[in-house]
Amino acid sequence: MSTLDEVGERAGWRCWLCDEPVDASLSKDDPRGASIDSIAAAVKGRKAAKGEERLAHRACNTRKGAVKPVVPWPSTMFLADPAPLVGVVERLGRKGGREVVARSPSRQDAEDAGTWLVDRLSRLAPDLRVETAVEPGGGQFVLMLRTV
């Protein structure tokens, strides 16, 4: 298992769930304080190896509990049917390929969402290399994510 400082440095001191900065100087009992989440171990049913732990705020980690985490899309984006990001990351990490992740009424909205998504996934799943594509379909624009 890694130390809090090791996990924090790897994560750039950002919470993997809410993507907000984590203040290492706060008490571990403070809701905005740092904690280690061993999501990979919980999913795989074994003890976490070094590098599998994620940095999270104490409150984010507690709120998640033992259920599958939800990483939200920004509420400022105009999207229809955005896919749950943790599930998308798990599927693409396991089998690669491509997946439709959202629909949008305009190409610009879809491209903006794609830019945000690649940036967010660079922190959520640093080992997963992805790119986005926007394609017209059915009077809307489809945002796809594919592994590279």
Rank of each mutant, 00 (worst) to 15 (best):
M1Q: 10
V7H: 04
V7K: 03
A11E: 06
W13A: 05
W13M: 07
W16I: 04
L17P: 00
C18A: 10
C18Y: 06
P21E: 14
V22F: 08
V22W: 03
S25F: 07
L26N: 06
L26P: 03
D29L: 09
D29C: 01
D29V: 03
P31N: 11
R32S: 11
I36M: 12
A42I: 03
K44P: 00
K47D: 15
A49T: 05
G51S: 09
E52K: 03
R54M: 13
H57C: 13
R63P: 00
G65M: 05
K68H: 07
K68V: 05
P69I: 05
P72G: 05
W73S: 06
T76C: 04
F78G: 00
F78E: 04
F78R: 00
P82S: 09
A83K: 08
V86N: 11
G87W: 06
R91V: 13
L92C: 07
K95M: 15
G96Y: 09
R98M: 14
E99G: 04
R103N: 09
P105V: 14
S106L: 13
S106Q: 11
R107V: 10
T115W: 00
L117D: 02
L117C: 04
D119K: 03
R120V: 08
L124D: 02
A125N: 02
R129I: 11
R129F: 11
E131N: 10
T132Q: 10
T132D: 11
A133S: 14
A133F: 03
E135W: 03
G138E: 14
Q140E: 15
V142L: 15
L143N: 02
M144Y: 07
R146S: 15
T147L: 11
V148D: 11
